[in-house]
Design a protein around this nucleic acid. Structure first.
Lengths: 104, 104
DNA sequence: TTTCCAATATCGCATAACCGATATAAACAA
DNA sequence: TTGTTTATATCGGTTATGCGATATTGGAAA
């Protein structure tokens, strides 16, 4: 019951954002999130998100030899991400100072 | 099906944070969120959050004449918020530039 | 080849988040 | 008093989020 602010949510946003910065595979994403949150999201968390983003053409597979699938963001995905980022910033515009204070 | 990144979540965090900046009532909070998101959260959304935060001593009622209840953050709430903010910043540290670019 | 491992895929489930509707209560006006 | 408005409270239900478990697949190693 301790710890309010579960911070559940926004995973789709985070994943799309990560891929927009660098082409990534599912495992790359799991690892990057582990670095940031301390916990590695389960496969059952990450792969359905990738599937959803791919299905809706926000990301697409890049030619890959082997079993590792890497994705890159699409035009549509960039547009979507831009809008989502706007919303995020409207909501959290005053987090800027906190971030600066804690992450430099 | 359009618009990924529903951005559902983080409401408890947002509410605690708003109250930490300024003593607020439920309606104050609804209005502030409307300003940021464009949509006014329903009473069924906001009041249960306040109840939860109050019950767990993260916020407390300040003496109020009349029916309007205003809350202020407690010591425990500040501690909790600080930890939550740390997590948030770890997760979104690279949003700083986006926020700067869009919100000035 | 066979064996093993690592990356991906999928399914069912538990929980959380949020909403709509409705109820209560307090203040004020007529 | 009665009626009206506004803030708060609560309940049930829907949707989304993320997890655990398990299956599948391809490559590498033996």
């Amino acid at each position: 019951m301790e710890s309010c602010c579960s911070m559940k949510g926004f995973l789709t946003f985070i994943v799309l954002r990560l891929i927009s910065k660098k082409n990534m595979s599912g495992e790359d994403i799991r690892e990057e999130i582990r670095k940031r949150k301390g916990t590695r999201p389960s496969p059952g968390t990450v792969y359905p998100v990738l599937k959803y983003l791919n299905k809706n053409k926000f990301i697409e597979e890049i030619s890959s030899k082997g079993k590792i699938k890497r994705y890159k963001i699409t035009k549509k995905g960039k547009k979507e991400l831009n809008e989502a980022t706007n919303k995020f910033c409207m909501l959290f515009y005053d987090m800027k100072d906190d971030i600066s204070r804690r992450c430099n």
